[in-house]
Nucleic acid binder design. Sequence first.
DNA 1: TACAATTGTGTACCAATTACACCTTCGTTT
DNA 2: AAACGAAGGTGTAATTGGTACACAATTGTA
Lengths: 248, 248
Amino acid sequence: MLTKQELDEHWAQAREIYLNHISIDCVVFGFHEGQLKVLMLKSNNEEAWYLPGGFVLNEEPIEQAANRILKERTGIDEVFLRQFHVFGDPNRTKFHNEAYKENAFFNQRFISIGYYALVDFVDVKPMPDAFSEICTWRDLNDLPTFQLDHEHIFRTALDTLRLQLNYQPIGYNLMPQEFTMPELQKLYETILDKKLDRRNFQRRILAFGILDKLEQTRKGGAHKAPYLYSFNLENYQAALTEGLQGGW
Amino acid sequence: MLTKQELDEHWAQAREIYLNHISIDCVVFGFHEGQLKVLMLKSNNEEAWYLPGGFVLNEEPIEQAANRILKERTGIDEVFLRQFHVFGDPNRTKFHNEAYKENAFFNQRFISIGYYALVDFVDVKPMPDAFSEICTWRDLNDLPTFQLDHEHIFRTALDTLRLQLNYQPIGYNLMPQEFTMPELQKLYETILDKKLDRRNFQRRILAFGILDKLEQTRKGGAHKAPYLYSFNLENYQAALTEGLQGGW
DNA sequence: TACAATTGTGTACCAATTACACCTTCGTTT
DNA sequence: AAACGAAGGTGTAATTGGTACACAATTGTA
């Protein structure tokens, strides 16, 4: 944790250590208790929430910068992280610039590269940044007011995720090591915001060949115990690069 | 056309009028005589070709910058133009920086936003920029040596285009007003680099409902005259936003 | 007028998706 | 301990979509 003075010095140097005009914003998706969550921070100054973000060091690849930023807010590394869009409207940080005008670094236009991440909820240790008092998961059904254009960024990420679902396997990054078929289905239903047929979902997802059926079942519920599954990493990776299906 | 001196003055001011560290590169696809083409420029100094590119003015939205750059090289406007990836490796312009080291503006790291465009070949009037002697279409089967990471940028754009083909109608921007079914099929085959069944292609593309069959046929070939089609703009736009098909 | 080449159209077959039903198993209830 | 409710496991018929073909029609040319 940095002191106020160290922070001031950091931002005073920011124009020298970071690339000017470029920022990164991350939409971090997690899944917990049947709900899709997004990691957000609450601004110190106002009743507005924003997405984890940061800047690119002078000699740092942008993918590495995104990873670094993610790690700073979550403590985790080596996660599913993809750029999905660049937000380059000159007015997108107008309000921001006013609020932080005492900070010279923020007094410039930023073009933000949007990344979205899929992470295992339980691995994340949310950590606030220098401008926030709270860093926590927000339920997609109970989203707060967003700062700047972060609602637009979030919405674009969600749309991208839904589209990706059609030709990329997802779940490995969002589910625990072992999970049941109904739990995986709930993930898909939550992302798509749509009910799926239990039997058809199972057949289709199994046909992809990315799951291993385990011997054990999950006892405890007041009903028939479902089988446990885990992802077959080899096939999963293959499906990631190949794409699940073609069109033409 | 600017004189050498005007150019020098322009680049001397570049750090003030353009956002530093940010560039835009465009992969412009055209289709002519059954061949897919990409617009490229040949460097004055070396035997290397590069993609149309440029920079973002201080208060300019990036989409507008991409459009401006495209118009400067082609003369056309209001075309299909989509960002597809950001290239942010710190070494990507290393060679570039050396070659242009007398130009202060180029002596910095650039993160490049990649756009791809689909344009009607005949509308384009290729115009060289300040660093090129030639601006012209290059056949995808006969590509030159690329400068910097432009081969990677081009390849990523082509992969994106192929993927988009699965859930977006394309063709309106690449085909003339009226065209025959075999001509449209050739476009798809060229993009995908794959033969398609004539009859199945026709059934499938017609099922999308984005084509209007015209009364006339195209005479002239030494064979049965094919019907002419045009795109139904209303349905085409709808398909663009809706996506041609879903997965889940 | 016959021919070669190309287009228009149709159909049988297989694969994938959809819409369902029935049985099994778990903890709970009585 | 037997019955029950609720959820999971598995199967199948009907429909849709995709693939692989064949044949007739039309064009300019030989």
